[in-house]
Nucleic acid binder design. Structure first.
Lengths: 213, 213
DNA sequence: GTTTGTGAATAGTTTCACAGCA
DNA sequence: TGCTGTGAAACTATTCACAAAC
């Protein structure tokens, strides 16, 4: 089933598979099966096989998947093989945590620039990154930065997004609890922490298949 | 179309609608339409109408939706009307940011307990919350706490989840980059910040439309 | 005239079950 | 024999278009 449109849900799961494969690889495992990987990450084995089938040429029937080739293949599909630089805007509580967050490196990301509006923070360093004045946010694409991370208060997030797009950013990870409008060709992924938590009580209290009125 | 099973995707969107409705309400607006709300949050108007139709009795044809009744209705469906206490485990960079995070209050959440393993942190307060010894994590349900937030390193997250479940927790918000196994009746929602970022380069180079959440 | 609510059509995703290869 | 890869079936969600309500 090669040469097909890739389902969005498949793209969403690929990083999960990559995470699991990296975990096994770090543990010294050289090859795996759809069953082993599935059990590790909490999905079903056919889901993994189906997802990989959209790309073709992942495993060997009767044997399984070679981990290092699986990892490099998924990295290639997700365009993670080259490494990516990101600019962070907003060095408050959350922004500072993101600067110190080790997990970005798992997928080859690095925050190489940070911006804030607060005069007391500008010029200082946090986790090795110089905090620059948001007002002097110039072209970022010339600095090799193509991704932006927005960690400013809700009221400022659209302005910050506009500035980042103007600076040449093509992808945004938005932590502010607000929809952000961007031109075509720019992709936004929003993480609203509180909103994800807001789904829990629904699932916790009555269970899912209940009827309403 | 009342008396139906509610699609998971609808449940996922309800907090988005609630966020938008609260935003309008704070701005002094008393009533809205599916079109206005849709434009604000970046979805299509029929999506909102369809989602609300599973529950019935939201709006008035020709008029629109009364905001305060919409808000209380969605709060009721999501069980957010009573307020919820949560326990945080792991007061590192991310955990500290979560303790200070004002957004939880939007949906009626409050972190009323915090735990860590680090002797130097135990006994201190952060954002008004006493940091307790993780080793002395007893029954939380008796303290009115039914939700847990996991912000510990990957290696510890499953153990922490087990301890929280034993303490009577029914819903978990997991920030560690790992699948967490829980007994039936407990719901886990995992936020892997780096993994969401990992989807961006794929969409950036493919050049696609925007995603809401 | 305006806006909701919803059946029906379309599109997309999950799940099965098994052919085929190592 | 063991495990992958994948058509086809079953299921779920999105989108349309319009009747009904104000």
């Amino acid at each position: 089933m090669r040469y097909h449109k890739i389902p969005d849900e498949t793209v969403r799961r690929l990083p999960v598979y990559l995470r699991g494969a990296l975990h096994l690889s770090r543990g010294g495992v050289a090859s795996t099966s759809s069953k082993q990987l599935a059990d590790l990450i909490g999905v079903e084995s056919w889901q993994i096989r189906k997802d990989f089938s959209y790309f073709g040429d992942f495993g060997t029937p009767g044997v399984g998947y070679n981990l290092s080739s699986l990892i490099s293949r998924v990295n290639q599909i997700l365009r993670l093989n080259t490494g990516h630089k990101a600019a962070l805007v907003g060095v408050g509580n959350l922004g500072s945590a993101l600067l110190a967050f080790p997990g970005f490196r798992t997928y080859g990301f690095e925050i190489t620039a940070a911006f804030d509006i607060d005069r007391r923070k500008i010029g200082r360093r946090k986790a090795g990154v110089l905090i620059e004045d948001i007002a002097s946010l110039g072209l970022l694409s010339t600095r090799g930065i193509h991704l932006g991370i927005i960690a400013v208060p809700e009221a400022a997030s659209q302005d910050v997004a506009n500035a980042l797009v103007k600076a040449g950013i093509k992808g945004l990870l938005n932590f502010s609890p607000r929809y952000i409008a961007v031109p075509r060709g720019v992709k936004v992924i929003t993480i609203d922490i509180a909103m994800d938590l807001a789904r829990l009580p629904y699932y916790v209290s009555a269970g899912r298949a209940v009827e309403y009125r």
